[in-house]
Design a protein around this nucleic acid. Structure first.
Lengths: 351, 351
DNA sequence: TGTTAGCACTCTCTTCCATTGAGTGCTAAT
DNA sequence: ATTAGCACTCAATGGAAGAGAGTGCTAACA
């Protein structure tokens, strides 16, 4: 039995109808709504074949049929081949919004993930860079008030992290500057994880031996600074629209909804999910292709974004397997491209 | 008819049972579980009286009874009088966690709201200061990379806000410093809202007339900086545990749950809710005492926190009217006290 | 040989009762 | 004033019956 043209048309019609209504599709519906020029009986025969081939299932003997993961997979792979190159019409509007607050990664991520979930109406995530694995370019100490200084860390990728630190007693501006310079000299080029491993002790010792350090109680400050640096968060997860699933018929069951929500709110599981998700420009995993039981009725569409051509993070959408793949794929693609472009422009070192 | 001792005991027993089980309480239950030494029949008579007095209602003729808002109000006011002065046993642990990352308000708020919702298992909020109404102490421009500078704003209350800004072309360190100093001189003492109103134009004009400005294209930079300052967020809302309500029997109805969630996720409504909530150390509004329909089955417990003795923000919990008031009140109280203390220590100007 | 009308059959879903059980209010006895 | 007893009420539970959507099969048709 082969997947001839008519079978494909019928399959697509069923998928399309099921995506719209979340209800098992019968032969009459197909013959009425989609003009195939054949009677329900013929369609029934074809549907029976499609079921045998594993593209459809019947929830019970006398109901219509539902597409399987295999059907979605076929449909998506087909989309792929005949990919519509027409750009998402919203692209320019989206770019403008993200670009407006593009000087901090945090804003780029927040805006991107929000827009993504607003357009798709599903749950969106961004899993952000492994800061601990990138090198520190320089650090800087800036006096804020008498008892507060700001520690600014600039990473190789021009990502900036800062933290305000309370001092027990003021440090003269001049001396702060000296500490800042010597600390920066010694720490730049190293990774945050190195600081945690062995650099910390080494640096503390070195700095103690410098004449001018002794003026101020570096004994307190430097180890504290090193701890702050070491604590910089490793992987950030941004999410939006988690509660959107409450609107989906497949999550009418409160228990199921709660299960999904607690999965989505758990950063660790999301990080793992996205790390497993393949490293292509765009990856799609459908239903049981997902490694997590909580997502067996969901599809995950992820894209990567890069710094300096190196893969560092992922953006993605989780929705029901019954999702409008064409729209979601095009949205994820567009937004990831916009992110890539904006990050490139704002965070990549010139040559 | 008066609220004699036995009626009070029975009322408390009913409230307590209803808080535990969320099910209408019958006379037999009370007589069995709470040793009052009287028969169900007697309790029935008393319950009938309590209903007449407005403390109880029957969902239908042949069911047990449920406490009304008035009953909770009585119960809470009574708690008040006989307030247990014993401190929450967790106080020290909580303080430690919040204190660990106390040099930035953002962390204090995030940690506090998280702990509050974790302990109470309800939804918690913090509505943070009106930044636009406080004066700017100083601003500072710090060079980050060739094309990035950081704009740091220190408010009168020692709150620090910073934003990274991308430049079209580099500015020499020296000149950046000059701009920073003149901008800071001119802007300190003013409020953010003043910047938006008229200060912006005035300052731009003034700075154009300074000799050294002309070296660099201040024409671009200064207006941009002013916009950044003017854009600093007005009121921040922190929330946690919104989806906790999915576990409550009163929100078994998905529609009701969705309504609550979209209310809780809407910053505007939360800001209004908290602004209406009274300015005492602790305020409680129960059920229909709340101005919002979405909260007619909820109680709101809020506390204030202060900077320099001035009220600036609120922390609070929203849960079902059927909540363990004693525990929630004590938790909100403790956490607000801890916040006050930590903020005082870290953000108040010395004398 | 593929298509289709017709029909019996299947299974869910809704509606409608009857039954159950928790709880009340009232009355009469203590 | 309290309580045992009892009739009564009403939500909740659990079939049973009927409706409706959809199927598979058969036989006729092009």
């Amino acid at each position: 039995m082969s997947l001839d043209k008519r079978k494909i048309l019928i399959l697509k019609a069923i998928i399309s109808s099921y995506i719209d209504n979340a209800e098992a599709v019968g032969s009459r519906t197909i013959s009425k709504k989609y003009e195939l020029g054949v009677s329900p009986a013929t369609i029934r025969n074809e549907m029976s074949d499609l079921e045998e081939m594993g593209f459809l299932v019947q929830p019970h003997t006398s109901s219509g049929r539902i597409p399987t993961d295999k059907a979605y997979r076929y449909f998506v792979d087909d989309l792929w081949k005949n990919a519509d190159k027409s750009r998402n019409p919203n692209v320019e509007a989206i770019r403008k919004i993200i670009d407006e607050e593009a000087s901090e990664l945090d804003s780029i991520f927040n805006n991107s993930v929000r827009i993504l979930s607003q357009i798709t109406r599903y749950t969106s995530f961004i899993v952000a860079p492994h800061l601990k694995k990138t090198k520190i370019k320089r650090i800087q100490l800036v006096s804020i008030t008498e008892n507060k200084i700001m520690l600014i860390i600039v990473m190789e990728s021009n990502i900036v992290r800062q933290v305000v630190i309370n001092l027990r007693s003021p440090i003269p501006e001049e001396q702060l500057h000296k500490i800042s310079v010597s600390l920066s000299e010694r720490i730049s080029g190293h990774k945050i994880e190195d600081v945690n491993l062995n650099l910390k002790e080494k640096l503390i010792k070195e700095l103690y031996n410098i004449k001018e350090s002794s003026e101020y109680s570096l004994i307190e400050l430097v180890p504290f600074l090193m701890n702050q640096i070491g604590k910089m968060e490793d992987i950030d997860v941004y999410s939006d629209g988690i509660t959107n699933i409450l609107g989906l018929p497949e999550y009418n069951d409160l228990e199921k909804a709660k299960e999904f929500i607690s999965f989505a709110e758990n950063k660790d599981s999301i990080v793992k999910l996205f790390q497993n998700a393949g490293q292509n420009d765009l990856d799609i995993s459908i239903g049981n292709e997902n490694p997590y039981d909580e997502l067996k009725d969901c599809s995950l569409i992820t894209a990567t974004y890069k710094f300096n051509g190196k893969i560092v993070g992922k953006i993605g959408v989780v929705g029901p397997t019954r999702m409008d793949y064409e729209k979601v794929i095009s949205t994820v693609k567009s937004i990831s491209e916009i992110m890539n472009e904006i990050i490139d422009r704002n965070f990549t070192d010139g040559i």
